[in-house]
Write a protein that binds this DNA or RNA. Structure first.
Length: 581
RNA sequence: GCGCCUGUAGCUCAACCGGAUAGAGCACCGGCCUUCUAAGCCGGGGGUUAGAGGUUCGAGUCCUCUCAGGCGCGCCA
């Protein structure tokens, strides 16, 4: 509808120019707003104020001329000049009412848009290290990423969701050592366990299952193990243990222990995400980038193009030439590639797999990382503008006023699963995305539980359930609903609350498009609150199940359309639309 | 110290590429259930949009500075 009004104005301006009433001017984009106040009509444009200066006239005068030359329209009832020079558009009532027909025809597809043009898009999110179960911070990224992906799909981006599995690197070695030490402890209680190894009970579980499947296969002599615990620097201590573990077990057995930890934890993660309603198309292994030489190819290419130099025994990438604060190490003195090196290869892979739009969703603590990844894409000639990095602030967990410190290594954290079990899936997902993603989120579990009845998610779901209830009661009360007849005579929907609800429903496609293009699920959340509010108000003001056939049918059609929009919106958020509450 | 982000009602947050009188929820006060679910609706109080300048027809929104908070500044990931 906005587009139609835009065209009307564009036409008028063209006429004004050709009639030489105003000079030929370069036109800015004509913006049309939804009026906040119904006294200002349905839509408003500020075009007269924007163009007044270049047209060398005053805004109200220009507005008058624009209105005079507006082409006739089927949808506009009248226009008005208001305030400093706004042009307000009042729509004909049947324009409002016809949205019901549109909604009921399109059903689940109402709100779809083609603006994404089937552009191949990769959304990578969560990607937590598989060193433990997902905690509450990951949950926010999971909910956010899933909804962003849903929104983009709705507006015709061809979306693939991916989880990058960091199955290489030191953290994973620490995990393997943690498992191995717990395994050894099963047979020898005297073996110590370092503070900075992974403490969680799940490590014991993995060790137990290792014991069950492989019995005593990984038990080695431990005489040389004990002295390693004497090392004072905890990081050196754990590195010493890693080295010892690798040497004692040998490559093959070390891999078995390592993979047991990886696979068990990854399975837990997958399971928790599925239960949370978050699914991935691909699970991309970091190790695979090393194994298939993508990493080394990248290093080679960068070296050939003089993006790499050697200093202090390490290989450095000249990121400072591309906007970064300093150069970054790709290959360490000890010969191992850094995480950043893998990431360069990973982004090469993303481009090589044909993705035109690459969305990375990271925790906000990684924001300093953006410049160097873009720099690396530049150096790799990979069009860094394809990459869009979205940051999600961490959620801080509270129990009442008590802030819960969390760290994966210490094993003290509330998992996503526990949160979901306690708060419920719908409320958890809704809570996570009802705020702008770059805002801090204080997730108070006490509050989330105790106030669960006041949670806005129920407000919206309640509207849906109420509508379902109306239709359950209908036959009991001896009424019928004839949709065909309803759609042929919607003109009886003229009450204030009806018009309000109709115009809110008409906004849905625009909301989806805006929310998708801005990667802002919370826009949809706020919109759905509006829909629910308009409906509840209407519900309290008007009776739907009444004798008058024409009015009853028309009202029920409006109510069905409302139900459809709520269901479409909630399903994008991954929240259920209950029929009974 | 440098860089990025944030600062809106008592609390938690909105405000559609700069638009009209800055809006909701919670909390507080007052109304509405012989009528489709009161998990609801209606009304009321509550603001110098952290502060000071600037840009223009017009600023919560853009620019500069100050203050306050968060995050980042590894041959960790």
């Amino acid at each position: 509808m906005k587009k139609q009004i835009q065209e009307l104005i564009a036409n008028s301006l063209k006429t004004l120019e050709s009639e030489e009433i105003i000079p030929a001017i370069e036109q800015p984009k004509i913006t049309i707003e939804n009026s906040r106040d119904s006294a200002h009509g349905d839509f408003a444009s500020n075009i007269a104020m924007v163009l007044a200066k270049v047209a060398k006239t005053n805004p109200r005068g220009l507005a008058e001329k624009i209105i005079k030359y507006l082409p006739k329209s089927d949808i506009v009832e009248r226009t008005e000049i208001a305030g400093p020079g706004f042009i307000n558009f009042f729509l004909k009532q049947n324009t409002h009412q016809s949205i019901i027909i549109d909604i009921l025809e399109k059903g689940d597809q109402y709100g779809d848009s083609s603006i994404g043009n089937n552009i191949a898009t990769l959304v990578e999110f969560v990607s937590a290290n598989p060193t433990g179960p997902l905690h509450i911070g990951h949950g926010r990224g999971a909910a956010y990423g899933a909804v962003v992906a849903n929104l983009l799909k709705k507006v015709s981006y061809k979306v693939s969701c991916e989880y990058y599995v960091n199955d290489a690197g030191r953290q994973m070695d620490i995990l393997a050592v943690s498992v191995w030490l717990r395994y050894l402890q099963i047979n020898n209680k005297n073996i110590p366990f370092p503070d900075n190894a992974y403490q969680g009970d799940y490590i014991n579980d993995i060790a137990d299952s290792l014991q069950k499947t492989h019995a005593e296969k990984f038990i080695t002599t431990t005489e040389n193990l004990f002295p390693l615990f004497a090392e004072e620097d905890p990081e050196l201590k754990i590195d010493g243990l890693i080295g010892y573990c690798k040497d004692e077990l040998g490559q093959e057995n070390y891999r078995i222990v390592f993979d047991e930890g990886l696979n068990v934890i990854l399975a837990t993660i997958k399971n928790d995400l599925n239960n949370f309603g978050v699914e991935f198309d691909t699970w991309f292994s970091e190790r695979s980038l090393v194994d298939d030489n993508t990493v080394s190819k990248c290093i080679e290419k960068l070296t050939n193009n003089n993006w790499i130099y050697e200093k202090d025994g390490a290989q450095w990438f000249r990121s400072s030439k591309l906007g970064d604060e300093k150069d970054r190490v790709l290959i360490r003195e000890n010969g191992l590639a850094t995480y950043f090196a893998s990431d360069i290869a990973y982004h090469l892979s993303k481009v090589e797999r044909g993705f035109e739009k690459i969305i990375d969703i990271w925790g906000a603590d990684h924001h300093g990382y953006i410049t160097r990844v873009k720099a690396s894409m530049q150096a790799m000639e990979l069009s860094p503008e394809k990459l869009e990095v979205l940051l999600v602030q961490f959620a801080t967990l509270y129990r009442g006023k008590e802030k819960l410190q969390m760290s994966t290594r210490s094993g003290q954290f509330i998992t996503l699963k526990e949160l979901q079990d306690e708060v419920g899936k719908d409320a958890t997902r809704f809570f996570y995305i009802m705020r702008k993603s770059e805002q801090h989120l204080d997730f108070d579990m006490e509050l989330a539980k105790s106030q669960s009845n006041d949670n806005p998610v129920y407000y919206i779901q309640y509207a849906h359930a109420r509508i379902c209830s109306v239709f359950r009661q209908m036959p009991e009360k001896g009424f019928t609903y004839n949709q065909e007849e309803a759609l042929s005579d919607l003109s009886v929907l003229t009450e204030t609350h009806e018009i309000k609800l109709l115009s809110t429903l008409a906004r849905y496609p625009e909301v989806i498009e805006n929310a998708a293009l801005a990667y802002e699920p919370h826009q949809l959340v706020y919109y759905l609150k509006d829909v629910a509010n308009d409906f509840h108000t209407y519900y309290n003001a008007s009776q739907f199940l009444i004798e008058d056939n024409v009015i009853r049918n028309a009202r029920l059609a409006l109510v069905v359309a409302t139900k459809q929009v709520i269901k479409n919106g909630l399903s994008l958020l991954g929240v259920s639309s209950p029929e009974v509450m």
